[in-house]
Amino acid sequence: MSENEISFEIRRASFKLHTELGPGLLESVYETALAYELRQIGLHVVTQVPLPMVYGGVQMEIGFRLDLVVEGKVIVEIKSVEILQEVHFKQLLTYLKLSGLKLGQLINFNVVTLKDHMHRLVNGL
């Protein structure tokens, strides 16, 4: 399955989830529910994936944690905030660069209408 096909399934599952749960819940709730939805359609999903960083030539094991990695190809960064800030986009781009993955989805579930709050970021795709 390509990154684009995975991205489509992530968006579809996110719409379903948002329709059923609505806005205003904790990020961890959306993360758990989205992982469940994606697994239900047969996708391999790993949650809270550690992403080490190298600083000063030393690998630091607790660098970052990726909310979801789907099929080993797409990072999903989940937010439940009033307004996405520029730092949220930069955070996902940094995760893509450090992981070597090419596609990420930034999704803010704390909104009335989800369609304008799902962002696709690419790293050399």
Rank of each mutant, 00 (worst) to 15 (best):
E9H: 15
E9D: 13
E9M: 11
I10W: 00
I10S: 04
R11F: 14
A13I: 06
A13Q: 14
L17A: 07
L17E: 07
L17R: 04
E20S: 14
G24C: 09
L26N: 10
L26A: 07
E27S: 09
V29Y: 06
V29K: 07
Y30N: 08
E31A: 12
E31L: 09
T32S: 15
T32G: 15
A33S: 14
A35E: 13
A35P: 07
E37C: 12
L38N: 10
L38T: 11
R39K: 15
Q40Y: 07
Q40I: 10
Q40P: 04
Q40W: 05
I41C: 09
I41N: 07
G42Y: 10
L43R: 02
L43W: 04
V45F: 07
V46R: 14
V46Q: 15
T47F: 08
P50N: 10
P50E: 12
P50F: 10
L51M: 12
G56V: 08
G56A: 12
V58E: 15
M60H: 14
I62M: 13
G63P: 05
G63W: 00
F64Q: 07
F64Y: 15
R65S: 11
L66Y: 05
D67Y: 05
L68W: 09
E71D: 08
E71T: 03
E71P: 05
G72R: 10
K73D: 02
K73H: 04
V74C: 00
V74R: 00
V74N: 00
V76C: 02
V76T: 04
V76Q: 03
I78G: 03
I78P: 03
K79G: 05
K79A: 05
K79P: 06
S80Q: 06
S80H: 06
S80P: 04
S80F: 11
E82C: 07
E82R: 13
E82S: 14
I83Q: 13
L84E: 06
Q85V: 11
V87C: 06
V87H: 11
V87Y: 08
V87E: 13
V87T: 12
H88W: 01
F89I: 06
F89E: 04
K90Y: 08
K90S: 11
L93G: 00
L93C: 04
T94L: 06
Y95L: 09
Y95Q: 02
L96G: 00
K97E: 01
K97N: 02
K97M: 02
G100T: 01
L101K: 03
L101S: 01
L101M: 11
L101R: 02
K102Y: 00
G104Y: 00
Q105Y: 05
Q105K: 05
L106R: 00
I107P: 01
I107F: 03
N108E: 09
F109G: 03
F109L: 07
F109Q: 04
F109Y: 12
N110V: 05
